[in-house]
């Protein structure tokens, strides 16, 4: 019994079918309870007023925007090393989700920034990094779309993902250097001093859990779709032979 068994498309669909309801229900429960708790049962910030509450969408989306890329990186490595088709398709499935998370993080950031900084957009390092991350997602998805042969597309996008990861990290440091920025410090960090107050952070953890479960459920769903599309094409190919 090894974890690679789940790399078999049929086994993957069976397993994820069993897991998906739990993920979906968990995501809904966490998001609904976390957002209600965060929006209605936390005090207003003494400086930022109620605008601070957008944190419950902004921070989890931003986290998932980065984690989705990390997941794609791991999946790409698995494809390159072990050539499991499910892995390549999971990376492909995660990209649009990550891109949407990036858009959510940017949009909520703009809405939060408007009353705080008096402008919808500043070229702050964090905002800029996310914009660049979004460009990386676009390029990755466009390359998948452009190549007809599935295995070639998987190979090329995997290498792009590896190279892109290195340059994404470099870009992060580059923009940090380029502009020190207005953005407040990390909302969650191990350093107690910078940490947002517990009153805010507890519902935030629930929301983050909700986003993670939502992300997993969506990746499962989209990977299943990709697998089924490939399976349909394979069946048509077999049909033609007979």
């Amino acid at each position: 019994m090894s974890i690679w068994e789940y790399a078999n498309p049929v086994k993957f669909i069976k397993t994820t079918d069993r897991l998906m309801p739990y993920m979906a229900v968990g995501a809904v429960v966490c998001l609904v309870s976390g957002l209600i708790w965060g929006f209605f049962f936390t005090p207003d910030d003494y400086r930022q007023g109620s605008t601070v509450k957008i944190i419950y969408l902004h921070v989890p989306a931003a986290l998932m925007a980065i984690n989705a890329w990390l997941m794609m990186l791991v999946a790409s490595l698995v494809w390159i090393v072990r050539r499991h088709h499910v892995s390549a398709l999971a990376a492909r499935a995660a990209a649009p989700i990550g891109a949407v998370m990036t858009i959510i993080a940017l949009a909520t950031g703009a809405i939060w920034g408007q009353p705080m900084w008096g402008t919808w957009w500043v070229w702050d390092p964090r905002l800029t990094s996310f914009l660049i991350l979004f460009l990386f997602y676009l390029g990755y998805m466009a390359l998948w779309e452009a190549i007809e042969n599935d295995d070639t597309a998987a190979d090329l996008t995997s290498i792009l993902c590896l190279v892109g990861s290195v340059f994404a990290v470099l870009s992060r440091y580059a923009v940090l250097f380029w502009n020190q920025g207005l953005h407040q410090g990390a909302s969650l960090s191990l350093d107690k001093e910078e940490h947002v107050h517990d009153v805010y952070s507890n519902p935030l953890y629930v929301c983050i859990a909700g986003f993670i479960l939502l992300f997993i459920a969506l990746v499962f769903l989209r990977t299943q779709t990709e697998i089924r599309a490939r399976r349909a094409r394979a069946l048509i190919a077999r049909e033609r032979l007979a």
Partner: peptide
Amino acid sequence: KPRVSAQDEAFL
């Protein structure tokens, strides 16, 4: 002999 390609086979 007609058979599906290796990359399709994984999905049958």
